[in-house]
Amino acid sequence: MRIMLIDDSKTMRNIQKSVLKQLGYTEIEEACDGQDALSKVAAFNPDLCLVDWNMPVMDGLTFVKTFRQKDKSTPLIMVTTEAEKSRVIEAIKAGVNNYVVKPFTPDLLSERITETLAKVSA
């Protein structure tokens, strides 16, 4: 399974990458903002994206809206903070399949990924 991590923080990407590797996912692509991600999705063709909300250049919500214009099925998990939690509905309307609130534990992230993939494949 190919997973794309979209986050402007390298530390966060590393944490997510480590969790994913522990879960056995090794095909991972990284993008530092929404625009960078859009330029890579065609080549990488992800099966799942973890999208941070706050990013420079293009934020997570704009990325989701743009991405969903062409791709309706690839599952997207929004990574938010407590402050953005109130806007989760907006994100779901835009097309995200699930969300995880920072700070999260590796267990919680892996739970969200498993849950999302199960929902999509059901």
Partner: peptide
């Protein structure tokens, strides 16, 4: 503060 949250997550990690 997202930065503070990320710092705690990094330390936890």
């Amino acid at each position: 503060n997202p930065d503070a949250i990320e710092k705690t997550m990094a330390l936890d990690f």
